[in-house]
Amino acid sequence: MKGRGAGWRSVEAAAGLLAPVEREVVLGDLAETDREVWRALGDVLGLAARRQLSQWRSWRPWAASVGLALPASLFLMGCSVAASADLACALGEPGQVQLLWFSLPRLLLVIAWAWMAGFVVGSVSRATLWASLLACAVPCLYCLSKWPGEGLSHLRLVVFFLPGLCGVWRGRREMQLGPNWAVLLAAMAMLTPLMWSRGGWVYGCWLLWPGGYVAAMARRKQK
């Protein structure tokens, strides 16, 4: 398959699903054989699908998607709706300064927790980020479809999505944090579910694991 037409370009595009080293090997193998485009495409997509399936034999994609992205999505949605309501109330009435002082630290905690959850999702399983994003998006889309009038305010976006996405980006690039950052995040991870107490104590305890993971990884790095 030595052509450089649209068929070959589609094969090259599909090979983008593979790791860089394997992509070169596979495209090289296909370049020196006389396979039809559809068979070459099948080869590349088949390998990509098998690689993706083999990822799911490990605990990592499950922990990142079902274990963290899904519950974190529900938790952060609840927190962000409550935080935006608190802030709107505090900012709407000048006499509510006390409420503002109470709301802001809680809001900062949620932002930090969202960043840390994104970091853990990105570092635990980089190859299956699509599944984690899906697990995060499904509850959001469900809620938006069920309560379409609510919409997704800018504040909620800031509280929830942006720190989470920043964390994912950082987690993908750097697998471990420094010990000081890890301790700070682990402490925040303990405080956040306790301060917000949404979904019961079992759910709250479950949400502590990303903090424990970050601290354990930092400790391993120190050794």
Binding site: E22, V25, V26, D29, L30, G42, D43, V44, G46, L47, A48, A49, R50, R51, S54
Partner: peptide, 8 residues
């Protein structure tokens, strides 16, 4: 023999 089966 697909490349997927071969490399896996």
């Amino acid at each position: 023999c697909s490349l997927g089966a071969l490399y896996i």
